[in-house]
Design a binder for these strands. Structure first.
Length: 581
DNA sequence: ATGAATGACCG
DNA sequence: CGGTCA
DNA sequence: TCAT
């Protein structure tokens, strides 16, 4: 219970609709309201002062249920957002504000400016966390109540009382054994060997939880293969079938998408100011949050998620509670940060260079072109700045791959070209085209000769490759970065040619398929097991001398076969589409 | 208090 | 080698 | 910023 002085709901009698605490989220909401002094009225009566309507419900459903034509005018009807906002502003807000309107409500909507109620403490959010403006505000204004809350439909889902969001549906919370879900004994045994693995891999581990949760219910929106069988010994792919293929496409489906979006921006912000670890921390927290099927609002819930500590948990709560008012932030945004962001999107420009330019007074791309000292690549990056920001539709990625494949096959039909990167993870669009090139039996040198020596010049004269940004110098070098364009289009695309010796194909596929968080996780797992995974293979017995200097490369365990690498690591195979964190 | 992935390219 | 990128 |  909060201190008496803060009990802003004292004297209120709340009637919820639906008026039960069977739903977990609503239950939480009710508890919270009580903490702030409200009384929960379980039976409809004259005493009711407020009706709190679930976001998915309409006014008509309320009246129909209560068998009334309209509710008495003195009774305040608001949606569920109202309570949160009141709590966050330590004030009873104007219930007529449009954010709190219940669909179908007869009254004329009066837009009330809630701005003046913003307590000073909240403005600290703005200064400490520069966020991108506009974009979000629009979304939020449009859909004040759009958060997809799993209502009673999912009731069965997280039944085990009010305990934490992560506890497996079947087990005791905090049970260390959560690793053994649904995997065969061999794998379980390997996983168990090291308790410390419990927290490591963002995905390897948490998804086990998620998977088993989803497994014990039929969790709705899956599109593909098979139906949910609860048989634990079924192939482990079943465990993942409920996973989204998020990749920028359907983030709106997530009940926490608004929060995630903001956290994402914070992560990007820290990235910009070169705080690599905070950036990473945020990304891991986001990955965690993405896996929640329920809206996470309060700190105490958020902190239970892996990789969400008290600082981020507090921010999650703040974001969840104050959304819809963020339009007030618009004005303030460090203009330097804007420029920085623009410069950093130039190919060949990182935070360091961008900061220097800003420092030196450059403010536009034209400024740079006119008087800054630019590397060759930066010139290309600026000249084709707009093109290179564009996402590449999946079909076009495919097309670029096909051009290269055809050219190679003309040289030798044995060549294999795999489109990697986000494309391989199933993304509908990509930032660049990653092509993994190999040939049975080929080593680095022979690939280099044919690709760099023959293929590239050939494609250049064909007008397909239009710029070389980075090519490997050594004759065993394995990559070529540049730009390409289809004959049918004038848009330049970033393309990477990755030359992979036949024996390293498996490791390379993992590496070039990502995503990066997934790669980190799996590599970390490897190192915890005394192995080392890089783009060339999985090794054991890596010796390191003083100062972390590598003495031995270690003994190659596997490089050629992607699945084997997973196997040796004791990680259940997951197809590329499921390597998104 | 401390570590947090790794390798390659560029200049 | 440090900075940057993937 | 998180986890150890």
């Amino acid at each position: 219970m909060v201190p008496e002085a803060q009990r802003i709901f004292t004297g209120l009698s709340l009637y919820f609709f639906p008026n039960s605490d069977a739903n977990k989220v609503r239950k939480r909401r009710i508890e919270k309201a009580k903490e702030y002094g409200a009384v929960w009225t379980k039976v409809w009566s004259n005493n009711v002062t407020h009706v709190i309507v679930d976001n998915k419900m309409t006014y008509q459903e309320v009246t129909k249920f209560l068998k009334l034509d309209t509710l008495p005018p003195e009774i305040i009807v608001v949606n569920e957002t109202y309570l949160f906002d009141c709590i966050s502003y330590h004030n009873l807000l104007d219930p007529k504000a449009r954010y709190y309107e219940v669909p179908g409500m007869p009254t004329s909507s009066t837009v009330v400016e809630v701005a003046k109620l913003l307590p000073s403490e909240l403005s600290s959010l703005n200064s400490s966390l520069p966020l991108k403006p506009a974009k979000n505000d629009i979304q939020i204004l449009d859909t004040p109540s759009a958060s997809v809350e799993s209502g009673d439909v999912h009731q069965g889902q997280n039944d085990p009382a009010q305990d934490n969001l992560l506890s497996p549906a079947n087990g005791t919370p905090n049970e260390p054994e959560n690793i053994s879900f649904g995997y065969n004994d061999e794998l379980s045994a390997i996983m168990k060997e090291s308790q410390s693995l419990k927290h490591i891999p963002v995905d390897l581990e948490d998804e086990d939880d998620t998977a088993s949760l989803a497994n014990s219910e039929s969790d709705s929106d899956d599109d593909s293969k098979g139906n949910p069988s609860t048989k634990p010994k079924k192939s482990w792919q079943e465990n993942f079938q409920c996973m989204d293929k998020h990749d920028g496409a359907n983030t709106d489906a997530n009940p926490n998408s608004e929060t995630i979006e903001i956290l994402q921006q914070m992560s990007e912000f820290y990235d910009r100011i070169r705080d690599q670890w905070r950036t990473l921390a945020y990304r891991k927290a986001i990955a965690s949050l993405k896996k929640q099927s329920q809206r996470v609002i309060f700190q105490e819930d958020a902190v239970k998620l892996p990789f969400v500590g008290h600082r981020i948990a507090a921010k999650i709560e703040e974001i969840a509670l104050t959304r819809g008012l963020r339009r007030l932030d618009n004005a303030k945004l460090d203009p330097h940060d804007q420029v920085l962001q623009m410069f950093m999107k130039i190919y060949g420009v990182g935070i360091s260079q961008a900061s220097q330019w800003v420092q030196q007074g450059y403010r536009t791309l034209k400024d740079l072109e006119k008087s800054a000292k630019l590397s060759t690549n930066q010139k290309i990056g600026i000249a084709h700045y707009d093109d290179l920001q564009l996402r590449i539709p999946r079909a076009e990625v495919e097309h670029h791959g096909a051009v290269v494949r055809d050219a190679l096959r003309q040289m030798d039909p044995e060549f294999q070209v795999t489109v990697g990167g986000s494309y391989r993870r199933g993304a509908l669009s990509s930032g660049d085209v990653d092509l993994i090139i190999t040939r049975p039996g080929a080593d680095a040198r022979s690939l280099n000769i044919s690709a760099i020596g023959t293929l590239v010049p050939k494609l250049e004269s064909a007008g397909f490759l239009v710029a070389a940004l980075a090519k490997t110098s050594k004759d065993t070098g394995s990559k070529w970065h540049g730009c390409s364009k289809l004959p049918t289009s004038d848009v330049w695309r970033r393309i990477d040619l990755l030359l992979v010796p036949w024996d390293e194909m498996g490791a390379a596929l993992i590496y070039f398929t990502g995503n990066d968080i997934f790669n980190r996780s799996i590599r970390l797992l490897a190192s915890k097991k005394g192995m080392r995974l890089n783009q060339r293979g999985l090794f054991k017995d890596v010796m390191r001398g003083p100062g972390r200097v590598k003495v031995t490369d270690g003994i190659l365990l596997e490089g050629r076969n992607e699945k084997r690498i997973f196997e040796i690591l004791g990680v259940p195979w997951r197809p590329p589409e499921h390597r998104i964190c």
